[in-house]
Amino acid sequence: MIKVNNLVKRYGEIRAVDDTTFTVKKGEIVGLLGPNGAGKTTTMRIITCFMPATSGSVTVAGYDVFSQSLEVRRHIGYMPENVPLYPEMRINEYLRFRAKLKGLRGQEITNRVAKVIDACDLGHQHKRIIEQLSKGNRQRVGLADALVGNPELLILDEPTIGLDPNQVRKVRELIREIGRDRTVVLSTHILSEVEMICKKVIIMYNGKIAAQDSVADICGGTKKQYICEVKTSPQKLKETVESIQLATNIISEPLKDGWAKVVMHSLKDTVDLREQIFNVINQKGWTIRELDVKSPTLEETFVNITSK
């Protein structure tokens, strides 16, 4: 659906997007993550034809964003950051205006507008003037606008910012719903949201892509952590575990109830250490009450990648 090749965008001396390459397949929900200023919004703006790239190419549904920009725009529903809207218009009036601009005709306009008003939970206030809406409602109008043209590709720049927890949940449900038969690219700072709805994650840092993969793989890619709780002294436990060749970063500590806890990493991610840990402790005849392996959370991975 989207192919980005060696994309570069410079603002004067600053490289906002620096040699970025990624693809988004049809039907994927992709989360674009990164600290502020990482180049997420710029990347989205280039994909939506709002600004051209300094170099590199972007195609959407096979059309080039620079030379076939009108075709590309027909395929995209875009919700910009901060959701700019015309303040003097009423919600339904605004959505009809947008639907027409997106090429809808006649009865289709009425149907689609009614549908998105319903989907975004704006039904009871569709005649309100946009200027008087709360931040959350503006956000939903923006989302309704992105959806109204029934686009194949949705690009949402921070869609849940400023919403209350209930609205966030609704929007998340809506995005998941849309993502069943459509492609969605969204940027956000809320990592739990990405874990819940995105199939694929792209982490940007300083204009470059720092990592891209499925949520499970992106977290699994960094070191797994082994945790074991044994009824013995911390010192003895540590010495025992050190006999495992692949174990590293071993930290052991006493627990309040007289047990000891040891935490370690494996030198090789492909080898599961649990069996060896069990064996060495079992040989000593100690009792084990917990043996676990944990992948770091997306948040830990994110911090790992973006604080280098």
Binding site: C49, I76, P80, N82, P84, P87, L101
Partner: peptide
């Protein structure tokens, strides 16, 4: 100023 130009330049109008 209000950024609505972004809305106009991302729909299929010239």
């Amino acid at each position: 100023r209000s950024g609505t130009i972004e809305l106009l330049s991302t729909v299929p109008v010239t």
